[in-house]
Amino acid sequence: MDNSVIKTNISVSSHSIKMQERLAIFLALIAGYIDATGLIQWKTYVSFMSGNTTSLGASLSTDKLEIVITSITVIGSFISGIYAGTCLSLSRRIKNQRLIFYLVSGILILYTIIAYFFNINTLSSITIVGFSMGMMNTIVTSVGNQKVNTDFVTGTLNSLARNTAMLSMTNDKAEKAEYQSNAIHLLFLWIGFLSGSFIAPFLLDYFGKWTLMIPALLLMICGILISKINPKN
């Protein structure tokens, strides 16, 4: 094979991994922002299903029906969003792979506008936002060879610790480079989610009912920019 072809493939692969990493961090920041907003406004997580599952189990044993209903609703909505997003990603009829960006953005924008003029109850709110978060979770599923979940903090920290441990235990240079790269990706992913959660309370106080318009517009802009960078998608 021509050396120029090999160099081009390596360059494309490296560029693709960097794009995946930046996009994953960006989505993790948005997930953290929306999750913190949901926790403040509706006292439940809209993307952190580990916490909701714990709440569901504890509430079942203590007969707290309201929390049981809330937990089941948001978990079901989140799963439905992942199902819908995965089906769209795998569909051969849909050529525009950035469609999920626009769908999630559109859902959040429509919800924000309606919620500004009308009072939307908690169950309806977490159903809509939980569904959109599940769908958003299907946009980036890996960075290079490392599987990632942009809103699954427990899994991110678990993978970070495992890759760090394997990095310290191996003597193979290639493996060290791979584990180090994975660990860095996962660390930035966690920092992204943490940063989104950190800024959410400040912006919620400032923007009030319009607070979800911020991640909605960011997703829309990101989808447009990526479409220009990769016109085939």
Score class of each variant (00 low, 15 high):
residue 44 T to F: 01
residue 28 A to Q: 04
residue 40 I to W: 03
residue 21 E to L: 15
residue 35 D to Q: 07
residue 26 F to P: 01
residue 21 E to K: 14
residue 22 R to A: 13
residue 56 L to V: 07
residue 57 G to K: 08
residue 38 G to C: 04
residue 23 L to F: 15
residue 33 Y to V: 00
residue 43 K to L: 06
residue 28 A to S: 13
residue 27 L to V: 05
residue 29 L to W: 09
residue 49 M to Y: 09
residue 48 F to Q: 03
residue 39 L to F: 13
residue 44 T to L: 02
residue 39 L to W: 08
residue 25 I to Q: 06
residue 41 Q to P: 00
residue 33 Y to E: 00
residue 40 I to L: 09
residue 60 L to Y: 10
residue 60 L to W: 11
residue 51 G to Q: 07
residue 28 A to F: 05
residue 25 I to K: 02
residue 25 I to G: 02
residue 60 L to K: 12
residue 31 A to F: 04
residue 34 I to E: 04
residue 28 A to V: 03
residue 24 A to W: 06
residue 61 S to V: 15
residue 30 I to W: 04
residue 42 W to F: 08
residue 38 G to R: 00
residue 47 S to V: 03
residue 31 A to V: 06
residue 39 L to C: 04
residue 62 T to A: 12
residue 20 Q to A: 13
residue 41 Q to W: 05
residue 62 T to D: 12
residue 48 F to R: 02
residue 25 I to F: 01
residue 31 A to M: 08
residue 59 S to P: 00
residue 51 G to C: 07
residue 38 G to F: 03
residue 29 L to P: 07
residue 59 S to K: 03
residue 31 A to Q: 01
residue 60 L to P: 12
residue 24 A to H: 11
residue 22 R to Y: 13
residue 45 Y to Q: 01
residue 27 L to Y: 06
residue 16 S to W: 11
residue 27 L to G: 07
residue 19 M to L: 15
residue 29 L to G: 11
residue 22 R to E: 09
residue 59 S to I: 08
residue 49 M to R: 02
residue 19 M to C: 14
residue 39 L to A: 08
residue 16 S to K: 15
residue 34 I to F: 01
residue 40 I to K: 08
residue 33 Y to G: 03
residue 58 A to Y: 14
residue 59 S to A: 11
residue 54 T to W: 13
residue 30 I to F: 06
residue 16 S to I: 11
residue 41 Q to D: 07
residue 58 A to V: 15
residue 62 T to I: 11
residue 42 W to E: 09
residue 42 W to A: 04
residue 26 F to R: 02
residue 47 S to E: 02
residue 34 I to H: 03
residue 27 L to S: 05
residue 50 S to Q: 04
residue 56 L to G: 09
residue 16 S to A: 15
residue 61 S to D: 09
residue 54 T to L: 10
residue 41 Q to E: 09
residue 29 L to I: 11
residue 38 G to S: 02
residue 47 S to K: 02
residue 22 R to T: 13
residue 48 F to P: 00
residue 54 T to N: 13
residue 17 I to T: 14
residue 40 I to G: 01
residue 52 N to R: 08
residue 41 Q to S: 10
residue 58 A to I: 15
residue 36 A to Y: 07
residue 25 I to C: 05
residue 26 F to S: 04
